[in-house]
């Protein structure tokens, strides 16, 4: 399941099949056209490619698609309310705080923040920083991001 829709691939080396070595990031971006998930390091170091798997943050560049059978994957494209199209409160909080500059790291940070809030609806600022410590942001949006995540958490209570 990706963003609520059933996705089924055969495993193999034919063109329509997913090779066992293909990463989830590649499957999402290249096969499913879900380019909202960005890739910075492709090496597990930066958190840019973060998506949710069964509600937990995973690095899609380090996850093999073959391992995702039966799992629920949510990407940045799947955060909006599927019926109303309304933004997730975290997305809205990022807009309200202007918590992005170039925006390339933002989908990954939002997904990490989503996982964090799913696990802990009322985090302290320290917990937010800890929860996002695997996310690289070179523009330095950290301060505005922390405020946005805190605002989203408080709004959601």
């Amino acid at each position: 399941m990706v963003n609520g829709s059933e996705v089924d691939f055969g495993i193999g080396t034919e063109e329509h099949q997913v090779p066992p070595s293909e990463t989830l990031a590649d499957t999402l971006r290249e096969r499913l056209g879900l380019t909202g998930t960005k890739v910075t390091c492709d090496n597990g170091a930066c958190g840019t490619c973060t998506v949710l798997m069964d509600g937990k943050a995973v690095l899609s560049c380090m996850t093999l698609t073959v391992e995702c059978g039966g799992r629920r994957v949510v990407t940045i494209e799947g955060l909006r309310d599927p019926l109303t199209g309304a933004l997730d409160p975290i997305q809205q909080a990022f807009i309200d705080e202007g918590a992005f500059q170039c925006g390339f790291c933002t989908p990954g940070i939002i997904m990490s923040a989503k996982a964090l809030l799913l696990e802990n609806g009322a985090p302290t600022e320290e917990e937010v920083k800890e929860g996002l410590s695997g996310n690289f942001c070179r523009c330095i949006t950290h301060y505005q991001v922390v405020r946005a995540v805190m605002a989203a958490a408080q709004g959601g209570e």
């Binding site: 990407t75 940045i76 494209e77 807009i95 925006g103 933002t106 989908p107």
Partner: peptide, 12 residues
């Protein structure tokens, strides 16, 4: 909000 704000936070 920046003109591209919604696009940025939705991955668009």
């Amino acid at each position: 909000p920046r003109r591209d704000a919604v696009d940025i936070v939705t991955g668009a």
